[in-house]
Amino acid sequence: MIVQTALLIGLVLFSVLAIFLKDLLRAAISLAVASLFLGIVFFRMNAPYAGVFEISVVAGLITVLFILTIALTNTAEEVRESPLANIVFPLFFVVFIVIDALVMKGLLQKIPTVASGPEAGTFGEVLWKGRTLDLLGQIAVILAGVFSVLALFRKRDKHD
């Protein structure tokens, strides 16, 4: 329980840092650390596939893409962190933890827990047979993303 709580606090801490930090590189790394914590939480809650994907894709691949993009575009200027972040961040963090502790404990007891059923087959079976429509939807999201990039960056190419 203590490890779990520590992991969750770390997750919130680094997620908020990722928003507050003005230096993009630091923000990207904070995000990676946050998702590392989340991945470990997934492992501890018996969801190894979710954990593997969280750590390999979100903490790994996406961070690499972010850092590459920052490295390619950064003008190497020193970014000054906002002084507000120094006050607002700890305040926000404390308030969040307090509210969380007060609300969640009462709330969690109200949710009737479902008896975890037997494993519904291997990962492949669940993905391909159980959630096939999700794959179609994901293809659509990826298509939308690709076409958005093509559409939104169309004029810049000419000007450059």
């Binding site: 939807g137 939308a144 559409a151 939104l152 169309r154």
Partner: peptide, 24 residues
């Protein structure tokens, strides 16, 4: 399925963000 509702909501939404910005 609730998750499919969420997923297709996002499909329509992602396309609509870039269409709003289409004029650049």
């Amino acid at each position: 399925d609730l998750f499919h509702i969420y997923l297709f909501l996002e499909v329509a939404a992602v396309a609509s963000y870039s269409l709003v910005a289409f004029g650049l």
